[in-house]
């Protein structure tokens, strides 16, 4: 299934990605951010916070924003 993934870490790229049916948000996070800890990010599905076991649906909008972003 397809969903819209926004990574606000670094460049802030947004892309449509393909994920397996029944994937949870925790699995998606591990797949897309292999070196990150979920606690260090604000993770939203369709602009809402969700539990880690939340099962993603076709067309979901997932955004990942680091809790710490260094200004200059």
């Amino acid at each position: 299934m397809k969903l819209f993934f926004i990574n606000n870490d670094g460049g802030g790229f947004a892309d449509t990605i393909q994920v397996r049916e029944g994937s949870t948000i925790a699995q998606l996070f591990q797949e897309r951010m292999p070196h990150g800890k979920p606690a260090d990010y604000l993770i939203r599905v369709n602009r809402q916070p969700v539990p880690e076991g939340h099962i993603l649906q076709e067309g979901d909008r997932v955004s990942v924003t680091p809790t710490k972003i260094e200004g200059a």
Partner: peptide, 14 residues
């Protein structure tokens, strides 16, 4: 005015 640093590009795109 915020000096956006590492957040600059993500802010522009958003």
């Amino acid at each position: 005015r915020l000096c956006e640093g590492d957040g600059q590009m993500a802010i522009d795109r958003a």
